[in-house]
């Protein structure tokens, strides 16, 4: 069935001044699954995310989302289609409160964001939903705190809440649990599992137990190329994968 695949790339390639960071990648992400993209440092995972959301323009190749070609679409428009990314380096609005951070995302779906003559109090109607999302990532006690005051792990949690606020059909998470304390990792992976029930998640993750726990499918990338694909057991047994991870000093 064609619409079983929500995101599909064909020959996706990115060269930086002759250096090939992503090479001929054909990715197929099935709707409603959690798909992990793993690989050693510098494998091209983040670059892939940047290509999918058009934060970088591919040198070659095509990207289809929901049966629609999005290769040349503007980043903001891709987000509006329901393909929303997070960033490897936590991306929050530092001098806005936690509540405002999430509300900015809710506000986008609400519309009326060019209204410069209206009081921002009209946004208070979004507070209820925002607080629910904040609670879901364990940040309820910090709702009024400026994001800049949060420790790193909590900033990541905030970023996930903000992404979720858009209720995207598909989320791209770049190392969602990086830098988190152990119990936060568990809370966030439980959250990802919960929110993935009615959406698709593509995530880059270095924590292999999180990957094993969550993912339906794993794509292994090394030096820009797809090395292996399948479920955790298949991939973990692949000699190329073992070789690549050993070779780069990863266990």
């Amino acid at each position: 069935m064609a619409d079983d695949v929500i995101l599909e790339t064909e020959g996706l390639t990115k060269e930086f001044h002759g250096f090939v960071a992503v090479k001929d990648v054909a990715l197929r992400v099935r709707r409603g699954t959690i798909h992990a993209l793993i690989g050693p440092n510098g494998a091209g995972k983040t670059t892939c995310f940047n290509l999918l959301t058009h934060f970088l323009t591919p040198t070659r190749g095509r990207i289809r989302f929901n049966g629609r070609e999005i290769t040349g679409s503007r980043p903001a428009d891709i987000a509006r289609l329901g393909l929303v990314r997070s960033f490897q380096i936590s991306a929050v609005f530092l001098h806005l409160s936690v509540l405002e951070n999430v509300r900015v995302a809710l506000q986008r779906k609400r519309g009326g964001s060019f209204d410069f003559w209206r009081s921002e109090r009209v946004l208070d109607s979004l507070n209820g939903r925002a607080l629910e999302l904040i609670d879901a990532v364990g940040l309820a006690p910090f709702a009024r705190t400026l994001a800049v005051e949060l420790p790193y792990g909590r900033k990541r949690a905030l970023e996930i809440a903000t992404t979720l606020a858009l209720d995207p059909e598909m989320m791209l998470l770049d190392e969602p649990t990086a830098g988190m304390a152990h119990e936060d990792v568990e809370r966030i992976s439980a959250l990802i599992k919960r929110v993935a029930v009615n959406r698709t998640v593509l995530m880059v993750e270095h924590n292999l137990s999180v990957v094993e726990n969550l993912s339906d499918t794993i794509t292994v990338l090394a030096r820009g190329e797809v090395l292996a694909e399948g479920d955790y057991r298949t991939v973990a047994r692949s000699p190329e994968v073992i070789q690549a991870y050993m070779g780069s000093g990863h266990a």
Binding site: F87, V92, F93, L94
Partner: peptide, 17 residues
């Protein structure tokens, strides 16, 4: 509010649409 978000982190604001 959107202006402040853009000032704080433009790529993130774009990624929110």
């Amino acid at each position: 509010q959107v202006l402040k978000a853009i000032r704080e982190n433009e790529p993130r604001a774009i990624s929110l649409g």
